[in-house]
């Protein structure tokens, strides 16, 4: 029989003989996500606690304390200092679920635009390096294809609920409407038989 793999929280609850411990440990793990990410960055970059501490102008014991603790004890200034020591920049994405989907889409469109501008900037900088410029060019095409494909999928799902005036009916919608009519006629004739 295949052995069931247990999560750390399940092990903790099992050893304590108390099921409520599982929730407590899961919560603590969730509260330590930022610290775990910082720690992963330090190890990935091959930096010691001492090196990070030197950059931040503090004692290595402070770094040790940060890494052994959870996100609730993190100070903003420590996050910035720690990541700067590793040469990692910060991008913060604020997500407000109460913002309507349309607002969120606008935000994402602007974010994609900024990133594309960044790529265009890189192409400008390395103007002579045709290999990089070609790759960026290809990637622009890929982005457009992906966008059109995803946009098309969603648009198809939206169309059946859209009521158009005949005058302003787009070709694709007109075709969709036409095919719905044909489908209905087919069903009617089948029913008549």
């Amino acid at each position: 029989m295949k052995k069931k793999l247990k999560s750390v929280a399940e092990i903790a609850a099992n050893l304590a003989g108390d099921e409520t411990i599982k929730g407590r440990v899961d919560r603590e793990i969730l509260r330590s996500r930022m610290v775990t990410t910082l720690l992963q960055f330090r190890i990935q970059k091959g930096k010691t606690q001492k090196q990070v501490a030197e950059y931040m102008g503090c004692d290595p014991s402070k770094i040790s304390k940060i890494e052994a603790g959870n996100d609730l004890q993190l100070k903003w200034i420590d996050i910035i200092g720690y990541l700067s020591a590793l040469g990692v920049s910060i991008n913060i994405l604020f997500e407000d679920p109460s913002i309507p989907a349309a607002g969120q889409i606008k935000q994402h469109v602007f974010a994609i635009h900024n990133l594309l501008e960044k790529l265009a900037g890189i192409a400008k900088q390395v103007g002579d390096d045709t290999q990089i410029v070609d790759k960026i060019h290809l990637f622009y095409g890929e982005v457009l294809l992906n966008f059109l494909s995803k946009f098309g999928d969603s648009y198809k799902k939206l169309l059946p609920f859209v009521k158009f005036d005949n005058a302003e009916l787009p070709e694709s919608a007109s075709m969709a409407k036409g095919s719905r009519k044909k489908e209905k006629a087919k069903q009617d004739s089948l029913a008549a038989c």
Binding site: V8, A9, V25, S32, T36, E67
Partner: peptide, 11 residues
Amino acid sequence: EYAACFANLDK
């Protein structure tokens, strides 16, 4: 402390 130790094991 018990939960914190296990969270560190997870790290």
